[in-house]
Nucleic acid binder design. Structure first.
Lengths: 203, 203
DNA sequence: TATCATGGTCACCGAGCGGTGACAAGCCCG
DNA sequence: CGGGCTTGTCACCGCTCGGTGACCATGATA
């Protein structure tokens, strides 16, 4: 209708994003995308040579992960001194950022369910972001040699991610109610407790 | 072929379990189940009144969660004194049990992706198991009032579950390689560190 | 004005899905 | 023996899916 290839391609890519954020990756079919974009599906094949390459294009363009700078925010305004302070702060920010990014949540779900080439690529991007964050921490204060800070971080981040992904479909986990802010505050407090006692505590 | 209603029903239920463990919940369709069971799909409708009730039957019969007794194992042989010792022990056992139960992993994935009546029921069963475990801990040694042991447990269990579910499709997380035992040993050690320093540490 | 590549529309294909109606084979009980 | 019930088989429906070929519309160029 518009006779503009670039715009049509952009429309299709935008439709992928909308569909992903709203309905999850299971609804990412050629028909659904074309419908959402208001475009004939044959154009998907013409412009992207099929769904896999379309998704790959989307993965390269989309900014579903924050940069470390975005994660940290205004560094001078952060009231953190010790390594534990910084870890707790980053965890808290990570949790907030993740909550605001349904598309990112959906990608994490996707990684969990399907091990294809695309999700592996997405996982690489995510892991790069994670390592950047670890490096940022290490520059603040070098890691204590007697504790495996990356492994500890992995457990805590994994916990946050899992709890976050759960809340969409189920509201309680281990007796904690995540439908109210109170539940999340308990988790937040628990994270603080863990980080402070584990990272700064004497070995 | 066998003209035995009870056995046919059992076959169908068994097929659900096999299919779930091997191919995940996304392949749980009427056609696939009937094929796997070597049974005409019309019998599923006759005997279970459709897929939802079949899955409900399966959920009630299947033992995808261990009991707390199974989780603990031979209690007298456990070398644990403090609350932290017990928590670390249970976490470790939980991790092992989960690794051995692909069907349980698949149910956890399912809970994460779909919020229907069935998964909510499954979530209830799981949460009951979790609360039983917490009660078991509380009987060993009452929780310190200045720490939110359930919330701390939730974070750690969530972390273990997430890392476990990831390993099927992706082998690294935050730079840790989970394809080798070494990666898991780091996680195990991190959990021990966290629990010991957090639960037994001074507030 | 005629040509021709580009961008878009439409109709169709085979396959798999969930779901149903009609019918055949075996069995119990009169 | 002969109804009637149970158990299982088969064929079919409508729908959506991914994927493709044929065609129409537009606009630049010769």
């Amino acid at each position: 209708m518009v006779r503009d290839k670039a715009e049509t391609k952009a429309r299709i890519l935008a439709a992928v994003g909308r569909l992903l954020a709203e309905s999850g990756f299971r609804s990412l079919g050629v028909n659904a995308i074309a419908r959402e974009a208001g475009v004939d599906k044959v154009l998907i094949y013409r412009y992207f040579e099929g769904l896999p390459l379309l998704l790959q294009s989307f993965a390269q363009e989309g900014d579903y992960w924050p940069t470390v700078d975005e994660l940290v925010g205004d560094e001078s305004a952060v009231n953190a001194e010790t390594l534990a302070d910084w870890m707790a702060y980053l965890l808290s920010r990570f949790s907030d950022q993740l909550q605001e990014r349904p598309m990112t949540q959906e990608i994490l779900r996707w990684e969990l369910l399907e091990g294809n080439e695309l999700t592996r690529e997405l996982a690489n991007v995510r892991d790069k972001f994670a390592l950047d964050s670890l490096n940022f921490l290490a520059e603040k204060e070098s890691f204590p040699p007697d504790k495996d800070i990356p492994a500890i971080s992995a457990v805590l981040v994994a916990g946050v991610v899992y709890l976050m992904l759960r809340t969409k479909s189920s509201s309680t986990f281990m007796g904690i109610d995540f439908s109210s802010p109170a539940g999340w505050q308990r988790i937040q407090a628990a994270l603080d407790t863990i980080v402070q006692l584990t990272v700064d505590g004497k070995p």
